[in-house]
Simulated scan of single mutants.
Amino acid sequence: MGRSQESFSKKEKEKKRLKKKKEKEEKREERQANSKKGKGLDEMMAYVDEYGNILDAPPDPSQKETINSEDIEVSVSKLEKAEMNPIRKGVVTFFNDSRGYGFIRDLETQESIFVHVNETDFPIKENDRVTFEIAKGPKGANAVSVRLT
């Protein structure tokens, strides 16, 4: 007769495996019993007040404020069109001849505006007084139609 192939350590490992499986099953059943699934729509709803806080109850409609959409400013405030002259005056503060670009300091707003050599009809250098127009570029304002004054 042959000896049994099960040793003491194999039996212990099997007991541990079954115990772990049983504990895992108990935890799963406990989670299912305590789960919040299947609750009503009212319990799942959340509301946001005017300050961005999350609430359980809907906000009071009598305290609701009406806001005119034209009063909302998302970015830089708009300048009056009457104030803005399309032809601006400025001084070249930096210009790199080898790369063909530089910056002009606007004398009215003190803004630094990018200028490229393709927008000039003549060579410019630092400290030149120029007139120019502003166009919107991919990275901000660009000076176009640059002329010496």
Results as ranks from 00 to 15, higher is better:
Ser112Phe: 01
Lys11Ser: 13
Glu23Leu: 15
Thr149Tyr: 13
Leu41Asp: 09
Lys24Gln: 14
Lys19Asn: 10
Glu50Leu: 08
Lys19Gly: 05
Asn127Trp: 05
Phe114Lys: 05
Gln110Pro: 01
Ile134Tyr: 02
Met45Tyr: 07
Glu26Asn: 09
Arg3Ser: 10
Met45Asn: 07
Arg147Gly: 00
Thr93Phe: 05
Ile72Ser: 08
Lys89Ser: 12
Lys81Val: 00
Glu26Ile: 03
Gly100His: 08
Asn68Phe: 07
Arg105Asn: 06
Gly90Arg: 01
Val91Glu: 09
Thr120Ala: 15
Thr120Cys: 15
Ala82Thr: 00
Phe8Tyr: 13
Arg88Met: 09
Tyr101Asn: 03
Lys136Arg: 15
Arg28Thr: 04
Phe8Trp: 11
Leu18Lys: 12
Ala82Phe: 04
Pro86His: 07
Thr131Leu: 12
Ala143Asp: 00
Glu70Asp: 11
Glu111Phe: 06
Lys139Thr: 08
Lys64Gln: 12
Asn118His: 07
Gln5Asn: 13
Pro138Met: 08
Glu108Phe: 08
Phe94Val: 01
Arg105Phe: 01
Lys24Thr: 05
Phe8Gly: 04
Ala33Glu: 14
Lys22Met: 06
Leu55Ala: 10
Ile72Val: 15
Glu126Asn: 10
Ile113Gln: 02
Glu30Gln: 12
Gly140Asp: 11
Asn85Trp: 02
Ser75Ile: 00
Glu126Gln: 13
Asp42Thr: 02
Leu148His: 12
Gln5Val: 05
Asp106Gln: 07
Gly90Pro: 00
Lys81Phe: 02
Gly90Asn: 00
Gly140Lys: 08
Thr149Ala: 14
Thr149Leu: 14
Asp56Glu: 10
Pro59Thr: 00
Thr131Gly: 06
Pro86Arg: 08
Thr131Arg: 15
Asp42Leu: 13
Ser145Ala: 13
Thr120Val: 15
Glu29Asn: 09
Phe94Pro: 01
Lys139Ser: 10
Glu73Phe: 10
Glu26Ser: 04
Val146Trp: 04
Asn85Phe: 06
Ser98Trp: 02
Asp60Arg: 09
Gln5Ser: 11
Glu14Cys: 03
Val91Lys: 15
Pro123His: 10
Val91Phe: 03
Arg129Ile: 01
Met45Ala: 11
Phe103Asn: 01
Asn53Gly: 05
Arg3Glu: 10
Glu70Trp: 04
Ala46Leu: 13
Leu79Ser: 08
Lys16Phe: 10
Tyr51Thr: 01
Glu111Ile: 01
Glu25Ser: 14
Ile72Arg: 12
Lys10Arg: 12
Glu25Asp: 12
Glu119Tyr: 14
Tyr51Ile: 00
Asp71Gly: 04
Lys13Arg: 11
Gln32Cys: 05
Pro61Arg: 07
Glu6Phe: 15
Lys10Asn: 06
Val117Lys: 15
Gly140Met: 13
Asn96Cys: 05
Lys81Thr: 00
Phe95Ile: 00
Pro59Leu: 06
Thr149Asn: 10
Pro59Trp: 05
Phe132Gly: 00
Arg31Cys: 03
Asp71His: 11
Glu80Thr: 03
Asp106Trp: 07
Gly102Cys: 06
Ile104Arg: 01
Ala141Gln: 09
Glu80Tyr: 04
Arg129Cys: 03
Ser9Cys: 03
Thr93Gly: 14
Gln32Arg: 15
Lys125Thr: 10
